[in-house]
């Protein structure tokens, strides 16, 4: 099991992803944004950060990096792709995931541990039971998920909403539990096939007991387990 962690100019969470994978006994290597070869990788992670300085829009420039054409092909072949924070923004800009990430409604950069509710979904990256509450840090300025009504209906019907922001007990506040104003409290979505997954929170920062929570571990181990099973 080998993760490829794509490094764009301005990425800053790639080391955390590699550290998380290694902590869990998995192998992860960096992939330069100018590379066009993903052969040898079993899964690809687009890490958080500020690719290309967030110029034009978050992820708008990164999606045209040479490596992204290969990431699109990798995803089309069914390869697992995970986008965390800026990586999620890049995946929406690349049309690998529906919707867009808008500026947080409160205009504040938010940075704190955040309870998230696992929804029943087709996502390949997570095998936690529906209703599980995980505590994972959020750290972003543009995490306010938006899509049109028709897309939202489709996401709900297809089981593409993977995670929702929630209260510590797993319920959702009547006015919404999203700290950034996200539509329907959506924190993470996957594509229809389930192999491409994007989320604003940072599971790679919740792997080492040193930082107080290990709730992020399943976000890396579930896909490793799944790939091992497929390989037989």
């Amino acid at each position: 099991m080998r993760f490829g962690v794509v490094l764009f100019p301005g990425s800053n969470c790639e080391q955390d992803v590699v550290h998380a994978a290694q902590t869990l006994g998995l192998t992860a290597e960096y992939v330069w944004h100018g590379d066009t070869d993903l052969s040898g990788f079993d899964a690809v992670v687009l890490p958080g950060g500020f690719s290309y300085g967030d110029y034009i829009r978050c992820g708008a420039v990164a999606r045209f990096s040479p490596v992204m054409a290969e990431v699109v092909r990798f995803a089309e072949r069914g390869g697992p792709v995970l986008g965390i924070c800026n990586g999620f923004q890049i995946l929406t800009e690349a049309h690998l995931l529906p919707g867009a990430l808008l500026r947080n409604t409160g205009l504040k950069f938010i940075c704190h541990p955040q309870p998230l509710r696992v929804e029943r979904s087709v996502c390949h990256w997570l095998d936690l039971p529906e209703g599980t509450v995980v505590d994972i840090p959020v750290n972003h300025n543009e995490g306010n998920y938006y899509c049109d009504d028709e897309t939202l209906e489709r996401l709900n019907a297809n089981g593409q909403v993977v995670l929702r922001y929630c209260e510590p007990d797993g319920t959702r506040a009547p006015g919404g539990s999203a700290p950034n104003g996200a539509l329907d409290d959506i924190a993470g979505v996957c594509n229809e096939r389930g192999n491409v997954f994007g989320l604003m929170p940072h599971p790679e920062r919740a792997v080492d007991p040193l930082v107080g929570t290990t709730d992020g571990r399943p976000f890396f181990t579930a896909i490793a387990k799944r790939l091992a099973e497929v390989a037989g």
Binding site: I56, R57, A60, V61, F64, E93, A100, Y146, C147
Partner: peptide
Amino acid sequence: RLLANPVI
């Protein structure tokens, strides 16, 4: 393609 995102 680049300057605007037609989704939003």
